[in-house]
Design a protein around this nucleic acid. Structure first.
Lengths: 109, 109
DNA sequence: CGGCATCCGAATGGATACTG
DNA sequence: CAGTATCCATTCGGATGCCG
């Protein structure tokens, strides 16, 4: 079956996108609600246009996120999770909360 | 409180290590059992000595992993999770399984 | 507003050789 | 065995400018 520890397994790429530097944060953000490009950009401190666009494209290609472009001018594009994306995002959100709640007991940085 | 979406929050660094390209796989591997350096290296296809050493050092510094060096020759070093690391690793393991079980319903790559 | 194209420095990361 | 050191290629990713 699928094994993220295997180099050529397709799940490895999806896992890499989901756990990537920005992927996890984007999934975590979308886990609660659909959001516009600029909303996501503002809510994730430090991400650039370029990286957000690239990250979203990867997730759309993976089938975890849907891009809805109204086609109007000015543009109005909304991103939301697919059914499968919602399941994955829920696991990401759990990880986010676990890390955050574990922080107080970790040695200071 | 701690917020992984905030740029300067310490939790952001820990989250980055845990969700990094190799960090997530290392945590996932250690989630079941303690392992030696070479065992981890073999079990994660594609990782190099250099990246494994660096990844483990980050996780040790974060307080999620403990390094036990027997000091003998030949060396015998075992890595295992701290109490907090076990909690985080469990969330990582859940994410790994979620991604793997979701794969069959995703568009092919 | 939501991108894409280009440039370019910084960081990532593999290969190899070496050590206790 | 468990790393470290060095070198080098690839990728990351910010800045800027442009477009509909």
């Amino acid at each position: 079956m699928f094994d993220v520890f295997a180099k050529e397994c397709p799940s490895r790429q999806v896992f890499a996108h989901v756990t990537g530097r920005w992927g996890a944060l984007v999934m975590g953000r979308l886990s609660t609600d659909p959001h516009r490009f600029s909303e996501i950009r503002r809510s994730i401190e430090g991400i650039s246009d370029r990286m957000l666009a690239q990250t979203l494209r990867d997730l759309v290609d993976d089938g975890l996120v849907v891009r809805i472009d109204s086609g109007t001018n000015p543009p109005h594009t909304v991103y939301h999770l697919t059914e499968q994306g919602a399941v994955v995002a829920e696991a990401v959100r759990a990880l986010v909360e676990t890390v955050q709640s574990t922080m107080p007991t970790l040695p200071a940085h």
